[in-house]
Write a protein that binds this DNA or RNA. Structure first.
Ligand SMILES: Nc1ncnc2c1ncn2[C@@H]1O[C@H](COP(=O)(O)OP(=O)(O)OP(=O)(O)O)[C@@H](O)[C@H]1O
Ligand SMILES: [Mg+2]
Length: 516
DNA sequence: AACGGGCTTCTTTTT
DNA sequence: GAAGCCCGTT
């Protein structure tokens, strides 16, 4: 692994950019997250900023944990430590402030988990109307409005009786706190001289308002508009555009060198994303050598897809290095059995797709870890983060570190793997389209394309794209065409293998997706 | 209260 | 296919 201390010229410029509103907008694998950690480390180590004056915002808790480790590593030997540095998600930062301010309640209060929300409406509404009320409440809160009347208000009162906040409330309350108690806002603003955010493209309006109120002169946001994949979860909002409006004349830096993916993979990904309108012309160059073509395979069925991937994985695993993490080979551009289990990720659009892979991997005796799937234990939903370790004992799954990773593309955001299988690349699955008869049959195609792009750009050395002609989903067997995204990859960058169909004569005119 | 048949719905997810 | 929900029956 390359030393994580190196920076190229643009990265260095971003790290050393003076305090002042700063956007770092750059493509995947260009070292945005590296810049983030170095910028924080530099503040502490070189500029002697007090760690407690820094607020570093990440998208997930696991990213926060990893960031903590990276920064600690960068500070090692300098005598400095992390002190009271805040590395938090937006939600966690809001929650911490509310707790420290004992607002809106003295003493204990807690967060209502998403799955417990409907229960709170017990007796208030027939359960068939609960979901839509919760949607309505979310809509209100996302627009920074408090529920004012009707069952929405009743829900809010029930939260209050139980000293509970839902996730959206965190921002409503912290913003209200700042409005009601200017002295409190002043204190927090004075504390956080330096605010930095990663994955800024997925910041919601409420989150942005919250962080903006805390931030002073030194406010740095880092992200990639082409990797915005959580639009579905919030009301439409363009954080980069808003930041520019709020900070006219802010500095805008970009990073153009991709250190993650071999050139063929990156070029293929660029061809796909090129179909989305770019606000700013894209510039992204591979630093690694070309590598092997993107491997595209079509299968007769979803089961076949899973079986073939399991076999493929076996072929990739190096004998001796089978259990080494990220063995760092394949710079040679040669196919080789040199990978460890932890080097390999199987990515998919829908959690429901995971099961077939689990079955196939189990049959092949290959250890894996599935992330994010809702897990029930004795009929009760358990929280993965805390309880997965125990849970694993009772299942076939393996401990982290020597297992294949199974997760949705959404979850893979920000991560990288030497070998990536991007699966279920069918029209209707990726891009996902709700059941054909539904009104909202139109997928939000640009976001789906970004998702595909995120999936592709997780790969360092090998990218396998696969689709099935037939898939069993939601109780129906669907006939599916390959995703149009696949056809956007130029011939010279890919190698296609269509698994031959069972003996059935087909007319010569077979629509060939790849010769559009 | 507990059972079961018929009905609908079912992404992606942060906390 | 599985789960949740409604509603009528035991
Ligand atoms: N200057 C550099 N020299 C060598 N390797 C680098 C350099 N900068 C970054 N890398 C490596 O490139 C990979 C991608 O870096 P990083 O995760 O920071 O990119 P990113 O822009 O945050 O990607 P994403 O958009 O997917 O979040 C990592 O493996 C990182 O160690
Ligand atoms: Mg990153």
């Amino acid at each position: 692994m390359e030393p994580s201390s190196e920076l190229d010229a643009s990265q260095s410029q971003a790290v050393h950019a003076d305090a002042g509103p700063l956007i770092v907008a750059a493509g995947p694998g260009t070292g945005k997250t590296r810049v983030f950690s170095h910028r924080v480390a530099r503040l502490i180590r070189d500029l002697h900023a007090s760690p407690r004056s820094i607020l570093a915002v990440t998208f997930t808790r696991s990213a926060a944990a990893e960031m903590r480790g990276r920064i600690r590593g960068l500070l090692a030997g300098s005598g400095a430590d992390l002190g009271e540095l805040w590395i938090e998600t937006c939600h966690a930062a809001a929650f911490r402030i509310l707790r420290e301010e004992a607002y809106p309640y003295q003493g204990e209060f807690s967060i209502l988990r998403e799955e417990d929300k409907p229960g709170l409406l017990e007796g208030l509404l027939p359960s068939s109307e609960r979901a839509s009320l919760l949607d309505e409440i979310r809509g209100l809160k996302q627009g920074l409005q408090w529920p004012q009347s009707g069952p929405a208000l009743a829900f809010q009162q029930r939260l209050q009786e139980r000293r509970l906040l839902d996730f959206d409330d965190l921002f409503l309350f912290v913003l209200r706190l700042f409005d009601e108690k200017p002295e409190s806002l002043k204190r927090w603003r004075q504390r956080f001289d330096h605010v930095i955010m990663d994955e800024f493209q997925d910041t919601s309006l409420a989150q942005y308002r919250f962080i903006s109120r805390l931030a002073g002169e030194d406010f740095c946001v880092i992200g990639d508009p082409d990797q915005s994949i959580y639009g579905f979860a919030a009301t439409p909002f363009s954080p980069f555009a808003q930041f520019r409006r709020d900070h006219p004349g802010c500095r805008v830096l970009s990073l153009t060198e991709n250190y993650r993916s071999q050139a063929v993979i990156l070029d293929a990904a660029k061809q796909v994303i090129a179909r989305n309108r770019a606000q700013v012309p894209r510039c992204l160059r591979a630093r690694l050598q070309r590598g092997l073509p993107v491997d595209i395979s079509g299968h007769q069925s979803d089961r076949q897809e899973a079986e073939m991937i399991a076999r493929r994985v076996e072929g990739l695993l190096g004998g001796a290095s089978r259990f080494t993490v990220d063995s760092g080979w394949a710079q040679t551009g040669e196919e080789a059995r040199c990978h460890g289990l932890a080097d390999i990720a199987i990515l998919y659009r829908l959690n429901a797709q995971a099961r077939l892979f689990e079955t196939a991997l189990e049959r092949a005796g290959l250890p894996y870890v599935t992330y994010g799937k809702k897990i029930k234990k004795d009929g009760v939903l358990i929280d993965e983060a805390e309880d997965l370790e125990d849970f694993r004992d009772s299942e076939t799954a393996a401990p982290r570190g020597e297992a294949i990773t199974l997760m949705t593309v959404h979850r893979a955001k920000g991560l990288e793997f030497p070998v990536v299988f991007l699966t279920g690349c069918e029209d209707g699955v990726l891009p996902f389209r709700r059941a054909a008869d539904g009104r909202r049959a139109e997928p939000r195609i640009e976001e789906e394309r970004r998702l595909f792009y995120v999936g592709m750009t997780r790969a360092r050395q090998r990218l396998f794209i696969s689709y099935a002609r037939q898939r069993f989903l939601f109780g129906k067997t669907l006939k599916l065409a390959p995703s149009a995204f696949v056809a956007d990859i130029a011939e010279e960058l890919r190698r296609i293998q269509e698994q031959e169909s069972p003996p059935r004569k087909r007319p010569g005119l077979q629509p060939d997706l790849f010769n559009l």
